[in-house]
Amino acid sequence: MAVVFGLLAGGVSVLEHLGHQRRCDDTAETTRISGVAPHVGSLKGGTNIKIFGENLPVDFSMTFSVVRVKFLSATHQYTCDVEETSVSTGQIECYTRAMPAGVYTPQVTLCSSADDCRDIPCLGQDDQDCKFETKTHYTPYIKSVTPTTGYPGTMLTVHGKIITPLFGSEQADNANGRTETIKRCYLDGAGQTCELRDSNGDM
Rank of each mutant, 00 (worst) to 15 (best):
Ala2Ser: 15
Ala2Asp: 05
Val4Ile: 05
Val4Pro: 03
Leu8Glu: 12
Gly10Trp: 05
Val12Ala: 14
Val14Gly: 09
Leu15Gly: 12
Glu16Ala: 09
Gly19Ala: 06
Gly19Val: 08
His20Pro: 01
Arg22Cys: 01
Arg22Ile: 13
Arg23Gln: 11
Arg23Leu: 09
Cys24Asp: 08
Cys24Lys: 05
Asp26His: 13
Thr27Ile: 08
Ala28Thr: 11
Glu29His: 09
Thr30Pro: 01
Thr30Phe: 08
Thr31Asp: 06
Thr31Leu: 11
Ser34His: 01
Val36Phe: 07
His39Ser: 14
His39Thr: 13
Val40Pro: 00
Ile51Thr: 03
Phe52Gly: 05
Asp59Gln: 13
Phe60Trp: 05
Thr63Leu: 08
Phe64Gln: 06
Ser65Gly: 13
Val66Arg: 02
Ser73Leu: 08
Ser73His: 14
Ala74Tyr: 05
His76Trp: 03
Gln77Asp: 13
Glu83Leu: 08
Thr89Val: 15
Gln91Trp: 00
Glu93Val: 07
Cys94Tyr: 03
Thr96Asn: 02
Ala98Tyr: 07
Pro100Ser: 03
Gly102Ser: 10
Tyr104Arg: 05
Tyr104Gly: 02
Tyr104Ala: 08
Thr105Trp: 01
Gln107His: 14
Leu110Cys: 02
Leu110Pro: 00
Cys111Ala: 12
Arg118Ile: 10
Pro121Asn: 03
Cys122Gly: 01
Asp126Ser: 14
Gln128Ala: 14
Lys131Glu: 10
Phe132Asp: 00
Phe132Glu: 03
Glu133His: 13
Thr134Gly: 09
His137Trp: 03
Pro140His: 04
Ile142Ala: 00
Ile142Tyr: 00
Ser144Asp: 08
Ser144Ala: 15
Thr146Ile: 12
Thr149Ala: 10
Tyr151Cys: 08
Gly160Trp: 01
Ile163Leu: 10
Thr164Pro: 02
Thr164Lys: 03
Ser169Phe: 07
Asp173Phe: 15
Asn174Val: 04
Ala175Asn: 05
Thr179Arg: 11
Thr181Ser: 10
Thr181Phe: 07
Lys183Ile: 10
Leu187Gly: 10
Leu187Arg: 11
Gly189Asp: 00
Gln192Thr: 07
Glu195Trp: 12
Arg197Lys: 07
Asn200Ser: 14
Gly201Phe: 03
